[in-house]
Design a protein around this nucleic acid. Structure first.
Length: 460
DNA sequence: CGTAATGATTGCTG
DNA sequence: CAGCAATCATTACG
């Protein structure tokens, strides 16, 4: 358009009209009057004008300006303009015709959908609507995975920001350019035939041009997201340590079920959920943990004590009330406490048993219960552990509680100095390995007490 | 940088 | 197919 204008200007300059009376439009016929009747005159006029137009290239600037003015003021001008506009309209339409309407480009739609799905073009704070964050969000805690996600999230928001600012920039530029062009065209429409429709069409063209640029932006944004995503997935494929919290939970379960650290499918699911990891990861963890624990029990003693104490304490706090209730029952039975596996002890949950027993011990050994032989308690406990050798089925819960209690005892009663050689270390693993008949017993690291518990188990 | 820790993988077993 | 044992590969740490 600019060029065109320039061209016109140039064309208007340096021209000498082949001597006609159009100076300043003075020579033109009177504007009003006998229009309808004067057919010849009009033809003549048009012929003149056309002629002027044809020879316009030979004029001088001043003359051209003058003539331009004259033309503008010519009474026929509007009519001619409209005719020319119409012609242009028709030819333009026929030329463009096909490309006139813009179908919703499937490519663009695809990009849009993807950007929307990726949370890039969605609402501002949409976060990652991507599947990646779904798992973490579902877990509630989310602290674990979100650490992993934070990086991804940050990068994604970065992309989104860039995308939005760029988009905005484009839009603004588009608007500016459109208004500019429109002004220009309006301006020019005074000197050359430009119909409003044509302006409209021009605006459409501009918009299309810009939207194609936008599509490029979208495309590159999509690519960026894809790259980020693949990189993120790659990073995830590589080993990442579980969060501290997750490890805590897993360890808690492990050590509170030390005598039978085989979580059921449900338990695994629960743990997986709690830790925001997959079930197979839980399985892996327990597999690794079992074997590593067994391999070098000594190394895990500290940890075991820690978690045992922790669970014991929490349980104690949590179910302190339950003890009162249960106390009413348990002391009455002669053989009380350690027949739990026979379901004499009908407490609600394993925890309550745990806390109860723990409490019994921490409260000062057997005193709280008027048991016939308080000294047997330890033996009984050990025998309980020992029970796991035969049938893990019978009282796994009880055993595990026993383990916990042992830990709790060692912690609370003050066996800390014996941590290196904890009296309970072998657990059911001892002897010939409780869990799954694994040989390598505690003999390697097992201290004093190993054989003792083995004996006692026979008593049961 | 070397080493321990640790999550995952593989091959094997019952 | 779950679990064990060995091993790999990566990460955390001094």
């Amino acid at each position: 358009m600019m060029e065109e204008q320039a061209r016109i200007m140039q064309a208007l300059s340096g021209v000498t009209l082949a001597g006609h009376s159009v100076q300043g439009g003075m020579g033109l016929p009177p504007p009003h009057g006998h229009e309808g009747t004067d057919g010849d005159g009009r033809k003549q006029d048009i012929g003149d004008i056309l002629h002027q137009i044809m020879t316009i290239t030979d004029q001088s600037l001043d003359e051209a300006q003058a003539k331009k003015h004259g033309l503008n003021c010519h009474r026929m001008k509007p009519a001619l303009f409209s005719v020319l506009c119409e012609i242009k309209e028709k030819t333009g339409l026929s030329i463009r015709g096909a490309q006139e309407q813009d179908p919703p480009d499937p490519q663009l739609m695809r990009l849009d959908n993807m950007l929307l799905a990726e949370g890039v073009s969605g609402p501002e704070k949409g976060g990652g609507s991507a599947a990646a964050t779904a798992a973490a969000a579902a877990a509630g805690g989310g602290a674990d995975n979100s650490i992993e996600h934070s990086d991804y999230r940050a990068k994604l928001t970065q992309i989104r920001q860039i995308y939005h600012t760029e988009l905005e920039k484009y839009e603004q530029a588009c608007n500016e350019f459109t208004t500019h062009v429109m002004n220009l065209l309006r301006e020019q429409s005074r000197t050359r035939p430009i119909s409003p429709k044509e302006i409209e069409r021009m605006v459409g063209i501009i918009h299309r041009k810009f939207s194609s640029i936008q599509m490029q932006l979208k495309q590159s944004t999509c690519e960026a997201v894809m790259i980020l995503r693949s990189r993120f997935l790659d990073a995830r494929r590589k080993r990442r340590n579980f969060s501290k919290q997750a490890t805590e939970i897993l360890n808690e379960y492990f050590y509170s079920h030390l005598s039978n650290p085989y979580p059921s499918e449900e338990a695994k699911e629960e743990l997986a959920k709690k830790c925001s990891i997959t079930v197979s990861q839980v399985s892996n963890w327990f597999g690794n943990k079992r074997i590593r624990y067994k391999k070098n029990i000594g190394k895990f003693q500290e940890e075991a004590n820690l978690y045992a104490a922790k669970t014991a304490v929490t349980a104690t706090h949590a179910v302190a009330a339950a003890i009162h209730n249960s106390q009413a029952n348990s002391p009455t039975t002669p053989n009380s406490g350690f027949q739990m596996k026979d379901e004499e002890f009908q407490l609600d949950s394993a925890e309550s048993k745990n806390s109860l027993l723990t409490n019994m011990f921490t409260a000062g050994s057997s005193a709280s219960f008027s048991l016939p032989n308080s000294g047997d308690m330890f033996m009984s406990m050990q025998s309980l552990n020992g029970a796991s050798y035969q049938g893990a089925q019978v009282g796994t819960n009880v055993q595990s509680q026993g383990d916990t209690i042992h830990h709790a005892i060692s912690q609370t009663v003050g066996y800390n100095d014996g941590l290196r050689h904890p009296m309970y270390s072998p657990h059911s693993l001892n002897g010939n390995g409780g869990w799954h008949g694994a040989p390598t017993p505690s003999s390697v690291t097992s201290p004093n007490e190993g054989p003792g518990s083995v004996h006692s188990d026979t008593s049961n």
